[in-house]
Computed example of a mutant assay.
Amino acid sequence: MGNPINDLEATKIDLSHQEMDRLVTELENIWNAFAVGPEGEPTGVEWLPVAGIADALREDLGYEDMPEFEDALGGTFNDFLDKLPRIVKKETDGKFYFQILPEPPREQWKATRQTLTIQSRNDLWRVCLKSPHARVEIPELEFEISADGKKHIDSIYNHIAQAIFNLGNYVSSTRASMPPDTAARIMETVEQLNVLLDVEKPWTWIVHDPAGISVLKPADGVLLDEL
C-alpha cells in the first residue's frame, strides 16, 4: 500500500481552473475525433498514442514546444494522464497508448454517494471528476455545487475556487438590483468557502451522482455508498 501523502503529491494538478478545463476539453475533442463517429458510434479506434496526442494537444493549446507544455503540466504528458479519472493506459513495445472510458448508458446508471473528509490542504489537490449529473454538498456550510449538465475535472481546490469566483461575479453583476441582505449572505458564503481552503479544521466533500460516474482520485479515504 502506498503512502497517502506521496500518492496525493503524485496526483496533484497545479493548473488554474480555466487551463485545466481547456486542456481536458481539447483532449476529449481529440479523442472523440478519432474514436467516435458522427452519430456517436464507435469508429473502431480503441487506443491513441500518448506521444503523438501530446504533440497535437501542445500545438492546439498554443504552447511553443514540449518543454514549455510539460512545464505547465508539472511533468510529462504521460504522467499527467495518470492523474485523470477515466483514462486507461497500456504499454506496447516501449510505447504508451491511452483511451478514455465512455460514460455508461442511462439504463446502466448506478447512483452513488462519495464522501471525503478534508483533513489537510493535501486533500484539496485530489482530482474530482464531477459528472454532468452530479452535485457536490459541503454540509458544514449547507452549500451545494449543483449539476449543470457539464463534466468538470479539476482539483477540489479549483472546484471551490471557481464557486467563489462565480458567487462573487454574480453579486458584482447584479448588486444594483439585489437586496442588500441577499448580497451580504452570498458574500458571507464566499468568505466561509475561502476559510475552508485554509483547512483550519476538517470538513466534508460529498459527491452525489445519480449516474455513479463521478470519481475522486486518489480514492483512499473516500467512503463510497451505492444508493
Score class of each variant (00 low, 15 high):
E26G: 00
G2S: 09
D225C: 03
S155I: 08
K83S: 05
L223M: 04
P4T: 02
R86N: 09
T112G: 09
R126W: 04
Y97Q: 12
P38S: 07
T174E: 09
T43K: 05
E226F: 07
N78T: 11
L224R: 04
P102C: 11
Q114E: 02
T25N: 12
S16V: 06
E46Q: 12
T76A: 04
E19H: 06
W203Y: 01
R106L: 10
K151C: 13
M66Q: 11
N169I: 02
D65H: 12
E103R: 12
E200P: 03
E188M: 15
L197Y: 01
L116W: 09
C128Q: 03
L15T: 05
T112W: 02
L15K: 07
T204E: 11
V45W: 08
L48W: 12
V36Q: 11
E9P: 00
D220N: 08
H133E: 11
I138P: 06
T182K: 14
I160F: 03
A35P: 11
I206S: 01
E46T: 10
I100L: 07
M187Y: 06
D93Y: 06
P4S: 05
T11N: 14
V50P: 12
R113W: 00
R185S: 14
K151D: 10
Q162K: 03
I153N: 02
A10C: 01
A54R: 14
E19F: 08
I164N: 00
I164A: 00
A51R: 12
D82H: 01
D225A: 08
Q162L: 05
I100K: 11
E70Y: 11
E39P: 01
G168P: 04
V222T: 04
P210W: 03
E91K: 05
P104T: 09
N166S: 15
A163D: 08
A219E: 07
G212K: 06
I156M: 15
Y63D: 08
E70D: 04
A51M: 06
R121Q: 14
P67V: 01
G94V: 09
C128Y: 00
E28N: 08
F77L: 10
H152T: 08
V45Y: 04
F98I: 02
P218A: 05
E59D: 10
N29V: 10
R135H: 09
I206F: 02
Y97G: 02
L124E: 01
M178D: 07
L124G: 13
W125Y: 15
P132K: 00
T174G: 00
Y157N: 14
L216H: 02
R185T: 13
A35D: 11
E144Q: 13
K201H: 06
N78G: 13
V24F: 07
V199P: 08
A176Y: 07
L15S: 06
T189A: 14
A56N: 14
T117E: 12
G44Q: 07
T189N: 13
L15W: 15
L193A: 02
V36K: 15
Q99M: 09
A134V: 01
